[in-house]
Design a protein around this nucleic acid. Structure first.
Lengths: 192, 192
DNA sequence: ATTAATATTATGACTAGGTACTAATAGTAA
DNA sequence: TTACTATTAGTACCTAGTCATAATATTAAT
C-alpha cells in the first residue's frame, strides 16, 4: 500500500475526514510510514491533532448534521452579514426541496436549521455549541418564499451560556423565532 | 466560597454539566480546594475526566440537542426493544406539542429526531455519531397518532460507517424512513 | 483530651497523544 | 558528487489526567 508523498497525503486527508477519531499511530500503521511522517503530513495539510479534531466534532456535529439534513444550501454562502458576537443575517430561499409536497409548506427543521446555524456562526468562539433551543414557528412558510433570519447576541449570560435570539421573516412578516443558549469554550477564570 | 463536601459536590456536578469543558484545575481554583479533592469528588460522583467529557459531547451533542428540540419525551424510556448492533424499536405518541397548531400535523423534525435517536442508540459503541442522514417523509402524521420506529443495522460499511435503516409506521402504514450513516470510534486495525 | 473516622492534600510514577526541535539517514535528480 | 527532498529517529516538553500511597486536617464521639 506504499504510495508516494502526494498520494499518501491526499488519501490521508480523506481518511481523517472519514475517521476523525483515528490516531497518528493508527495512521502510521495504515500507510506503513513512521509516526513522524504522519505528523509532517498533518502539518503540511494543516490537519489538527486528534484531540482538537474531537473537540471540533464536539462542536460541529450538530451544525454539520443540520446542514446535511437541511440540504447544503442553507448556510453555504448565504450569510450576508456577520459581525461576531453582535449580529448576523442569512437568507434562505424555500424551494421544492424544503417543502412537504402535499401542501408546499416548508418543513420546520429547515427554518430551525437556518436559525441555529446562524446562532452558531455569530458566536465568536471556535468552540460554540447549542446547549438549548427555545423555538417558535409563527407562521408557515411556503415554496418560493425567501426567509431572512436575523441573529442578535443578547449579552446576558444565563448559566454562563451566551443567548442568541434569532428572528426569521418573510417580507417583514415574522415566521420563526428562536432563542438559543450557546456554550462557549473560553472559560474565563472565576473565583479568586 | 468554601462549602462542605456535600454542598461542593452538588455544586460541582451542576458546574460540570453547565461547562463540560472545564478542567480539574479550574474547578480546584473555583472551589478553593486542591486538584486532588476535585478528582476524589469526580470519582465519587462518577464524573469522567475532561477528555472523556469532550468525547461524550462530540457524540451526544446531536442527540442532546435533538432531544431538547423534540421535547424530552421522544426517547425517554420509550425504546421498547433494543438489541445492540441489530435492531431497536421505539414509540412516540404525537401530542399537541409535536404538531403545527393550524393543521395538527407533526413537525418533521420530531419524526427525524425519533429515528435518529434510535439509530444512535442501536449502535454498540459509546462513540457513535451521525455522519449523514438520508431521510424521507412519506406521509404526514397528525396529533394522537402513535409512531413506531424500527431501526435495523445494515451490515454493509460504506466508507467505514455503519448504516442504520429506520422505518417509522403508524398503524402499519409507513410514514417516515431514514438511512443513517453512523461513525463509530472503534477503529479496527487495518493494513498489515 | 484522646481516639476514631472522615476529609483533604501531597507526592511520585505512569499514561495517551500529542508539539517543537534537532539530527541523522535514504532516495533521487542534476 | 553535490543538492535536495523525503523519511525516520530521538529528545525534551506539554496537558490533563489515572492510580496508589501516605501524610495531614478537621470533625465527631466517647
Amino acid at each position: 500500500m506504499k504510495r508516494n508523498k502526494k498520494e499518501r497525503q491526499v488519501s490521508l486527508k480523506e481518511t481523517i475526514e472519514q475517521k476523525p477519531f483515528i490516531t497518528d499511530e493508527a495512521l502510521a500503521n495504515m500507510y506503513e510510514v513512521s509516526i513522524q511522517t504522519i505528523r509532517l503530513d498533518r502539518m503540511e495539510l494543516n490537519i489538527p491533532e486528534l484531540r482538537e479534531r474531537i473537540k471540533s466534532v464536539a462542536t460541529s456535529t450538530w451544525n454539520e448534521t443540520v446542514k446535511a439534513l437541511a440540504i447544503d444550501d442553507v448556510i453555504g454562502g448565504e450569510i450576508i452579514d456577520l459581525e461576531l458576537d453582535q449580529r448576523a443575517i442569512s437568507i434562505m430561499d424555500i424551494t421544492a426541496d424544503h417543502v412537504f409536497t402535499r401542501n408546499k409548506i416548508a418543513r420546520g427543521h429547515h427554518l430551525f436549521a437556518q436559525a441555529n446555524s446562524l446562532a452558531v456562526a455569530v458566536i465568536n468562539d471556535d468552540l460554540a455549541l447549542t446547549a438549548n433551543a427555545d423555538i417558535k414557528f409563527i407562521r408557515q412558510v411556503v415554496e418560493g418564499e425567501r426567509v431572512i433570519a436575523k441573529a442578535k447576541v443578547i449579552g446576558m449570560e444565563i448559566n454562563n451560556r451566551t443567548v442568541v435570539e434569532v428572528h426569521s421573516h418573510v417580507d417583514n412578516e415574522p415566521v420563526f423565532t428562536g432563542v438559543f443558549e450557546m456554550f462557549r469554550s473560553t472559560q474565563e477564570k472565576e473565583g479568586g
